[in-house]
C-alpha cells in the first residue's frame, strides 16, 4: 500500500467536492476491489474518499412495486430481502461471507467487473441506477470493460428494481474466485421477458434472442436451437469463449427451470 489521504465524507456534496478538488481521488464503498488493489500497490490515489458515513445511502425499502436499494447496502443485506427472491439469491452467492459482509451494490456496479453478479440483475430486472446527478436506465449503464455511464466523480445513490412477476438467476462460478464465469438473470417483468448475462463478455448485456424465444414460450426447451454468438466472448485461463457461449444457454435454461417450478 502507498500512503494516501483517507477522507471521510459526511454527505454527498462533500464527497464530490473532495473528489473534485483532488488531483487523484477514488471513492471507497465496501472496498472489496479497491483495498486489495491498494495492498498490492496496483492503485496509488492521493485521496480515498469514504462513503460509508453518508446518511441514508445504505437503506433498503420497498414501495409501489419497486425495491429501492441504497448504494451502500451490503450484499448480505440484499441477500436478506424478500421482495425479489432472485435478487436476494444472487446477492447470497457473491464471493464469500466476508465479501458479502463488506461489499456493496453501488461499489460493485460502479466498478463494473465483467464477472460481477449484480450487472446481470440490473439488466435482467430492468433496474434504474440513481446517482447524485441523475437517473440512468440500467440498459444504458454498462458501457465496456470496467467502464460505466457514470461521469467522473458521479456517485451512485440507489438502485431501483421493479419487482418482476417472476425471476431467477443461475450462475456458473469460477472455482478459484467464485466470480461468475457466466451468470444469467431471466425475468418476466411487466415490460416483458428480460435476460441479463454477466461474465461472458467485456461487460454485462441483454440477450434479446433469448428474450424473444422465451416471450413465446417460457420453458427451457424454447432455447434449444437459439444460437449464442460467442465470437466476442471472453477467453481466459478458466473458460474459452465457446465454453462461455455454451454456459450462457445452460445457465439460462437453469434459470428458466427455476422460475417455472
Amino acid at each position: 500500500m502507498y500512503t494516501f489521504n483517507f477522507r471521510r465524507a459526511s454527505n454527498l456534496d462533500e464527497a464530490q467536492q473532495i473528489h473534485q478538488s483532488s488531483s487523484d481521488a477514488v471513492y471507497v464503498a465496501g472496498g472489496m476491489t479497491l483495498i486489495p488493489s491498494l495492498k498490492l500497490r496496483l492503485a496509488n490515489p492521493d485521496d480515498v474518499v469514504d462513503l460509508s458515513q453518508i446518511d441514508g445511502l445504505g437503506s433498503i425499502s420497498s414501495a409501489d412495486g419497486v425495491v429501492s436499494i441504497g448504494a451502500m447496502a451490503r450484499h448480505c443485506e440484499v441477500a436478506a430481502t424478500s421482495d425479489i427472491p432472485a435478487l436476494a439469491a444472487l446477492a447470497n452467492r457473491i464471493g464469500d461471507a466476508q465479501v458479502r459482509n463488506r461489499g456493496t451494490i453501488g461499489g460493485s456496479l460502479a466498478n463494473n467487473d465483467p464477472a460481477a453478479d449484480y450487472p446481470a440483475a440490473v439488466l435482467g430486472l430492468g433496474a434504474i441506477v440513481h446517482t447524485n446527478a441523475r437517473a440512468i436506465a440500467g440498459d444504458d449503464f454498462f458501457v465496456d470493460l470496467f467502464e460505466t455511464a457514470l461521469d467522473e466523480g458521479e456517485i451512485i445513490t440507489r438502485v431501483d428494481f421493479p419487482i418482476p412477476r417472476r425471476a431467477a438467476y443461475a450462475k456458473f462460478a469460477n472455482q478459484a474466485s467464485k466470480y461468475a464465469v457466466v451468470g444469467v438473470m431471466v425475468a418476466e417483468t411487466d415490460a416483458g421477458i428480460r435476460v441479463g448475462v454477466t461474465g461472458a463478455a467485456a461487460c454485462a448485456f441483454r440477450l434479446t434472442s433469448f428474450e424473444e424465444a422465451l416471450s413465446t414460450n417460457m420453458s427451457a426447451s424454447a432455447l434449444d436451437g437459439v444460437e449464442v454468438d460467442s465470437s466476442d466472448f471472453n477467453s481466459d485461463l478458466h473458460a474459452s469463449a465457446a465454453y462461455r457461449g455454451s454456459l450462457v444457454t445452460v445457465m439460462a435454461k437453469q434459470a428458466v427451470d427455476q422460475l417455472t417450478t
Binding site: N174, Q175, A176, S177, Y179, L237, H238
Partner: peptide, 23 residues
C-alpha cells in the same frame, strides 16, 4: 479437479493468486 500452476509462454505465473489458482 482444481489446482494448476500455469506459466504463460513468457514465463509469467498466470495462476499467481487465489483469483486464478483454485484451492
Amino acid at each position: 479437479l482444481l489446482e494448476h500452476g500455469i506459466y504463460d509462454g513468457d514465463g509469467n505465473l498466470s495462476t499467481g493468486s487465489y483469483m486464478d489458482y483454485a484451492m
